[in-house]
Simulated assay, not measured.
Amino acid sequence: MSTLSPPSRTLGRTGIEVTTVALGTSGLGRGTAPGSPQESAAVELATAMLASGRTIDTSNEYAGGRSEPVLGLALPAVRDAASRVVTKVDRDPETGAFDRDRVLRSYEESLRRLGVDRVRLLHLHDPYTVSYEEAVAPGGALAGMLELRDSGAVDAIGIAAGPIPLMTRYVDTGAFDVVLSHNRFTLVDRSAAALFENARTRGMGVVNAAPFGAGILATGATGGTTTGAGAGRAPAAAPSYGYRPASAALQDWARRAEAVCAAHGTTLRATALRFSTRSPLVDMTVVGVSSVPRLTQLDALEAETIPDDLWAEIDALGPAPTPIDDDAPGGAG
């Protein structure tokens, strides 16, 4: 793992400095019991992630609620790391409630688990159990987010979810400082581009998560065991994209993209990461990391040289057949 400070940027108008590549913790501590050897191993990984100097992205509900407690056990070992932790409020796991009161409770739970007094940036995460109209109504989730920011409990608030039509409605409120979308601004799927451009015109910070599409851009067209950074989930037997099976057409596109990358002396994985980090639309790219070796590999990926003329050849392949359709029933994800 590199001892150099990772590259950083300012997150839109927030004034918050974040690393260009942040570490996602959606799988951190999953299935571990407090005090178990498995928890100790997760804390070891969390300590390495915090010591990397990178921004850490977590959530109240990640890993069934275990991600934040594991980070909380690791935080005392790494000086000044708490200021680099970003979390998210989530719906009530039992009732699905997601109103103003739940937002405040979720944030309190997160602070208690992390062992911190506050976080600088807090996202409203996956508001799918309530309608947009309910979320923005008096007493809704948005009211809770605004209350936290207006009271100084957090410095900035964000909206973090997937489907672009829904995300656009939240961004258009003008209430949020940051937008986070996942799996929708990659070599395969660029449907978040207009959303990110909209956010940029408002001075918002932009966070792009899952630049590998949670699958094929990390595993390659053949799928199988993931050999690079960004595998926060167990590897699938067959290639996937956005947690959905990759079609034969997408696998063919990925094979051709791999050939282009190889001809330029690089890999599809490194190219997928650079696609996000080089974009003027993106301030921070979130990559899931599941082990200490993957963290080291991420340093190498970020530093890899990508020839400028590669991008035109990737574009010449034509649009990749993404399996994500936000207009289809069940498109939230």
Score class of each variant (00 low, 15 high):
residue 183 N to D: 14
residue 324 I to H: 06
residue 88 K to F: 01
residue 238 A to F: 02
residue 145 M to H: 04
residue 198 N to E: 10
residue 223 G to S: 10
residue 249 A to F: 07
residue 283 D to V: 06
residue 217 L to H: 06
residue 73 L to S: 08
residue 39 E to P: 09
residue 171 V to W: 08
residue 316 A to T: 00
residue 317 L to T: 01
residue 246 A to N: 10
residue 133 E to K: 00
residue 220 G to P: 07
residue 247 S to Q: 09
residue 163 P to K: 12
residue 198 N to Q: 13
residue 281 L to N: 14
residue 135 A to W: 01
residue 3 T to Q: 13
residue 45 L to S: 08
residue 98 F to I: 06
residue 221 A to S: 15
residue 203 G to H: 06
residue 119 V to E: 05
residue 211 P to W: 13
residue 199 A to C: 12
residue 220 G to S: 06
residue 178 V to R: 11
residue 112 R to C: 04
residue 279 S to Y: 14
residue 232 G to N: 04
residue 63 A to D: 10
residue 323 P to K: 09
residue 178 V to N: 12
residue 264 H to R: 10
residue 95 T to A: 02
residue 128 Y to P: 00
residue 327 D to F: 11
residue 329 P to A: 09
residue 91 R to M: 10
residue 185 F to W: 11
residue 19 T to Y: 07
residue 67 S to L: 05
residue 114 L to D: 02
residue 208 N to V: 04
residue 67 S to Y: 05
residue 244 R to A: 10
residue 133 E to Q: 15
residue 83 S to E: 14
residue 21 V to R: 11
residue 51 A to T: 01
residue 251 Q to P: 04
residue 252 D to C: 03
residue 80 D to F: 10
residue 268 L to T: 08
residue 56 I to T: 10
residue 309 D to P: 07
residue 251 Q to T: 15
residue 220 G to Y: 08
residue 180 L to G: 09
residue 324 I to A: 04
residue 3 T to M: 11
residue 236 A to I: 02
residue 321 P to L: 08
residue 176 F to R: 02
